[in-house]
Design a protein around this nucleic acid. Structure first.
Lengths: 137, 137
DNA sequence: CCTATCTTTGCAACAAAGTTGCGTTTAGAT
DNA sequence: ATCTAAACGCAACTTTGTTGCAAAGATAGG
């Protein structure tokens, strides 16, 4: 996995800041909140982090998930998402114990029947519960 | 529908502010954002509105939904939700044209198979698309 | 109907989350 | 090595939500 190539392919310049962000995001199958990343990169400017994440989302390197508490998290896209409006077609799981947010890439969004006249364009499923490691403990 | 009774039954005092909030929330099948309600009740203090909504949620008169953009909305519960942690077991629909958020009371949350070890406690489905009136137009 | 008490309200101040503008630095193409 | 557009850091600002406290209001009891 050469992140430099991925970044450059999306038309963004490769910088140390961007590389370190994408590296952290690639660890585990998790989505990270801005606050968490801010702690990890304690020397990086808050604004720079916001811009890196938003740029990454814009070009389709990461996707954004907002949980029921309104906390925004970012996760690396697996296959390159189509630019801009990418429908991350998988379910997200938020553990109530460790509070990690997982991308369940293999669990796809369900089919849902809507009332007459309603037309679905995009779906987002968020599941709360116990993740595999917290459940075992 | 006597809202006064509902409010008093939940152990809250009946005040003009609370009555007007619950009346607006009962219009249509929609969820209202704080910002929208603030415009409607332009004389009411911002903090009071926050407290009314939070109190209503706490006692189970309304439920809270956060959309993919992180906007928090409040909707009246149909059957009285169980106090505190009420799982509003219905799907929410956000129209991309009129930006209204609808509670599709008759569309229940789907069943989803999780990977081994994961245990679902609560589910939240959010659908984006065209609502019946915007779709017709 | 009046009073006492506990709740609710309004105000001010604060905290967290996110955005914008601008001057400086840096990536990378020539 | 030079040049230019992109990225960064800083300061300031907006939006969203919370907390403490004094004043006003709801309702149960006399």
């Amino acid at each position: 996995m050469d992140f430099s190539v991925q970044i450059r392919e999306k038309g963004l310049k490769v910088t140390p800041a961007r590389l370190s962000v994408i590296e952290v995001l690639s660890e585990g199958n998790q989505a990270f909140a801005h606050a968490e990343l801010e702690k990890i990169f304690d020397t990086m400017d808050r604004v720079t982090l916001y811009r890196i994440l938003n740029d990454f989302e814009y070009v389709g390197l990461v996707h954004k998930i907002v949980d029921a508490e309104g906390i925004t998290r970012f996760a690396l896209c697996k296959k390159s998402c189509p630019d801009k409006h990418h429908t991350d077609d998988h379910v997200h799981f938020n553990c109530q114990i460790c509070h990690k947010m997982f991308c369940l890439d293999k669990v796809h969004e369900p089919q849902i029947n809507l009332p007459n006249g309603f037309k679905a364009e995009r779906l987002q499923t968020l599941i709360y519960g116990l993740c595999n490691s917290c459940n075992a403990a």
